[in-house]
Amino acid sequence: MAEWLYEAGIGEARAALVERGDIVEMAVERDNERGPRAGAIVTARLTRKADASGRGLVTLADGATAQLTPVPAGLTEGSALLVEISREALPEGTGVKPPRARIAPHGARPAAGPDLLARITASGVSVRHISRGPDLLEQNGWSEALEEAASGIVARPQAMLRISLTPAMTLIDVDGAGSAADLAIAGARLAGETIRRFAIAGSIGIDLPTLTGKAERQAAAAALDAVLPQPFERTGVNGFGFLQIVRRKVRPSLPDRLAADPLLAAALALLRQAERATGHGALTIQAHPAVIARIESRQDWLDMLTTRIGATVGLREDARLAISGGHASRSQS
Rank of each mutant, 00 (worst) to 15 (best):
R247P: 03
R156E: 15
V250E: 09
L17P: 12
W142L: 02
L183F: 14
G54I: 01
E77V: 12
T306C: 12
A50W: 03
V96I: 14
V58A: 04
S297K: 02
T43M: 10
E193F: 14
H280P: 02
E233A: 14
S297F: 00
T312S: 15
T210K: 13
L165N: 08
A199Q: 15
G95Y: 09
S53N: 14
D207G: 13
R45A: 11
T76R: 15
L224I: 10
G107T: 04
P105C: 09
A186T: 07
A265C: 07
V154A: 11
L263R: 11
H327K: 04
G187S: 09
T212E: 14
A259H: 15
P167L: 06
R45D: 04
E29I: 05
P262V: 05
I120N: 04
A15G: 00
A89V: 00
R37Q: 04
A186F: 07
F242G: 10
L190N: 11
M160H: 10
A15I: 01
R294V: 01
W301C: 02
M304W: 02
V96W: 11
I85M: 03
A260Q: 04
L263F: 00
V127S: 03
A219Q: 09
Q332I: 14
Q332M: 10
V174N: 07
R197Y: 08
D115F: 06
A180N: 09
I204M: 02
G9L: 08
